[in-house]
Each structure stands twice: as C-alpha cells, then as structure tokens.
C-alpha cells in the first residue's frame, strides 16, 4: 500500500481479514511469507511499530465497568505519546458522556470510544477491523464521519476491513479482495472498476465483491 492510501479489505466471513489484522499488529508470527509495516516486521519489531500505528478491533477491548474517563487516564499512562486532550475533545464533540461506564454506552458510542482511543495514538497507519459491524445506520454514519475527519486532518494510511463496501466506496482509494486466506484481486478503486467495466456498465465495489468472493459476501 502506498502511503496515504485508504484500502478496503473485502472478504466473506472466515476469509482471513482478522487474521491479517493480527499479523499486521504483530500478535502472531506469519507461518510463511514476509510481512512489512512501515518497513518493519510486525512480529519482531512490535514495540517500536506499535508507537507508529493504531488498530480498532472488531469488538471494543474495554472493561465494561470502567468509566470512559478512567479508561482514558489508564490509556495515557500505558500508551506512550497517547494524546489525551485530542481524545477528550473528540469525545465531547461526539457527545460521549465520559463519566459513564463503558458498558452503559450504546453500541455506537462504544465503537466511537474504541475508534478515538486508536486515533489518540496519532499513528501513521490505522487498521480498522470492521468497526461498524452490528451498528445501526446512524452509529455507522458517526463512525464514518470520525474517520473522514481524521483523513482531512492528517495523512494516515488506512486498511479498512468492511462488510459494507457500498457505504465507504467514496472514501477508499484502493481495495483488496480476500478469499480463503489469499488476496484474489487488488488495485486502486478506479483501476478495478475500469478493468471490470463492460458495455458501459460500471460495477460498484460491492458488485466486484459479489463477483469475486461469491454471494455470501454481502452481510
């Protein structure tokens, strides 16, 4: 991926999207092949690399009994360079009550806290593992808004796993289609669409996902 790209990672459940995210996060070593993030090997250079990247997991990893504010203070202590004032400003902007326990927030608010915690790292690379999974349309909108605002503010390279390519097609510069642990197809969105255009009919990314990944893709 070139720097500043926003790549959609599309694939059916079980294709390996989360495994790829774990590999990129250095949570497990690759069984074969080579993996590089910002020129580093995630498994061997996890600690220095984690200061330059951030990750939003599929389900937020926050204790439900913890108040948002306590969680933020905890994060600031354990994550070097974590920008507390940025995160608190953002949480206020999105109307998240920081004195509330995480478990008492709506799913959408939990997703936003999880995203803001990642953005607080101010990393060069952002991994999004289907952060809108299970959220209603308004909550998804809020999350997209936060992501677009981040892109407007600074250059960040994003790998965005999603089940809803139609909703984020406009944000993506690139797309990769993952099936059975392999990238079937990848390229810039413009290129992928042009190559697949037939008789004046232009496919959307979702059409391409269905074509290349089988009908079970669209959630």
């Amino acid at each position: 991926m070139p720097r500043g790209a926003v790549m959609g990672l599309l694939g059916p459940n079980g294709a390996g999207k989360t495994t790829l995210m774990h590999l990129l996060n250095g949570l497990m070593p690759p069984e074969a092949g080579r993996l590089r993030v910002l020129g580093c090997e995630p498994w061997r250079e996890r600690v220095p690399l984690q200061r330059r990247m951030a990750s939003v997991p599929e389900t937020p990893q926050v204790y439900p009994w913890m108040k948002v504010r306590t969680f933020c203070d905890f994060y600031r202590r354990v994550v070097p360079g974590w920008d507390l004032s940025f995160v608190l400003d953002k949480l206020a902007e999105y109307g998240i009550p920081v004195e509330r326990r995480f478990g008492r927030l709506s799913r959408g608010q939990q997703g936003l806290v999880s995203l803001m915690a990642a953005l607080g790292r101010r990393g060069e690379v952002l991994l999004l593992d289907d952060p809108t999974l299970g959220l209603d349309v308004l909550a998804r909108r809020q999350l997209y808004r936060a992501i677009v605002e981040e892109l407007a503010e600074r250059e960040v390279t994003v790998l965005f796993a999603t089940h809803l390519p139609a909703e984020v097609e406009g944000v993506l510069t690139h797309a990769a289609f993952l099936r059975d642990g392999r990238i079937e197809l990848q390229g810039t969105v413009e290129e992928l669409k042009r190559q697949a255009t037939a008789g004046g009919s232009v496919p959307t990314l979702e059409d391409l996902a269905v074509r290349h990944l089988g009908g079970d893709h669209v959630a």
Binding site: G4, V6, R141, Y144, R145, V148, E149, L151, A152, E153, E167, V168, G170, V171, L172, T173
Partner: peptide
Amino acid sequence: SIRQLAVQLTVNPNT
C-alpha cells in the same frame, strides 16, 4: 469546507 463536504458525502477529503 473540504472537511464538511467530505463528511457530508462520505468521500475521501483528498478527492
């Protein structure tokens, strides 16, 4: 602004 329009349309601000 670039940011407002990008958010409104859910498109990449660079576009």
